[in-house]
Amino acid sequence: MTDTFEDNRRLLFAAAYRMLGSVADAEDIVQDAWLAWNRADRTSVEHPKAYLVRTVTNLSLNRLTSARAVREAYVGPWLPEPLLTSPDVAEGAELADTVSMAVLVVLETLTPVERAVFLLREAFGYTYAEIAEVVGKSEAAVRQCAHRAREHVRARRPRFTADASEQREIAEKFLAACAGGDLREVLTLLAPDVVSWSDGGGVVSAARRPLYGPDHVARWLLGVLAKPEVQGMEMGITEINGEPGLLMTLAGVPFGAVTFEAAEGRITALRFVVNPEKLRGLRP
């Protein structure tokens, strides 16, 4: 019983995290799934993996429905919790894509059922019949739902993105410019239509509205880095949500994360997560 669950634990966490955009909530869901598995009559379970994924998906749907109200009252922009990942996080391009911060943000605009259907189909390769059983809808309804979700995501996801090597190169230049307090260099790395979001949750100081344009973004960023409370902070490049990002630490403790989108050699979007309650996934 334990071996079966542990063999699928990574998959279950991956499904819950993509559904919820929260490391803490995903860990809770996996624990709840374990309790459900422990109580279940396993003699009647023909396919344990499918049973466990269905359990996690349904638990996540319930959690996501209640979480929407909390997020609507959130102070400032709400961003998914950043997650340290390794080069083998993907086990396939689709799985890596659906863990990126940009796509997780888009998934927030889907209904809970659309999100479940999209992820089960696009990330985990479930058939429409299998998904129908998970979400309790007809196969025809699931097909329609999957089509709507796919079109919605396609319309809102970044159209042009840098590959991993180019993104890492841009991250290195951006890190060097920020560390040196070089406004001119930071400006050269930002696209004319760059947008920046900061998630402090009202717990720590952060911009409570998106910032637009390179000059506004650059001056705000360098102003934050010059504050006394962040003196001694270190920044390094690491893989966050399947892509090169910046991990910020203070006295060795995670202080925040920066993820970004880039195209044609410039940064088009920046996302800062500094809410200390959302940094659980940045601890190795």
Rank of each mutant, 00 (worst) to 15 (best):
168 R>V: 03
233 M>D: 02
148 R>G: 05
228 P>K: 07
225 L>D: 01
186 V>G: 02
129 A>L: 14
183 L>F: 12
200 G>P: 00
169 E>K: 06
204 V>T: 09
174 F>Y: 04
148 R>S: 11
179 A>P: 01
174 F>E: 01
179 A>S: 10
221 L>F: 04
133 E>K: 05
213 G>P: 01
218 A>R: 01
202 G>I: 12
194 V>T: 07
152 H>G: 00
233 M>A: 06
236 G>Q: 10
145 C>T: 10
132 A>N: 00
128 Y>T: 09
172 E>A: 13
151 E>N: 12
238 T>W: 04
125 G>Y: 13
145 C>H: 02
162 A>Q: 00
232 G>E: 11
143 R>A: 09
162 A>D: 04
195 V>M: 08
164 A>P: 00
177 A>P: 02
161 T>G: 08
141 A>Q: 06
229 E>A: 10
222 L>H: 08
215 D>M: 11
226 A>E: 13
230 V>R: 10
123 A>Y: 03
133 E>V: 10
225 L>K: 00
144 Q>I: 06
194 V>M: 05
130 E>V: 12
140 A>S: 15
230 V>A: 09
185 E>W: 03
205 S>F: 15
227 K>V: 13
188 T>L: 07
143 R>I: 08
206 A>P: 01
130 E>G: 14
221 L>W: 00
154 R>C: 03
130 E>Q: 15
143 R>T: 09
234 E>M: 09
191 A>G: 07
125 G>S: 15
162 A>E: 02
237 I>M: 13
159 R>G: 13
214 P>F: 06
236 G>C: 06
225 L>C: 04
150 R>N: 10
206 A>L: 06
197 W>M: 05
130 E>D: 15
221 L>Y: 02
144 Q>H: 11
239 E>T: 12
206 A>G: 04
153 V>E: 07
169 E>M: 04
223 G>E: 10
189 L>Q: 02
141 A>L: 06
207 A>K: 05
238 T>S: 12
185 E>I: 05
187 L>Y: 02
127 T>S: 15
235 M>D: 00
197 W>I: 00
149 A>L: 10
146 A>Y: 03
209 R>Q: 12
205 S>H: 15
227 K>M: 13
180 G>E: 07
197 W>G: 00
131 I>M: 03
163 D>S: 04
126 Y>W: 13
187 L>G: 05
210 P>Q: 07
171 A>Q: 01
157 R>P: 01
213 G>Y: 06
172 E>M: 03
150 R>F: 13
192 P>S: 14
154 R>S: 08
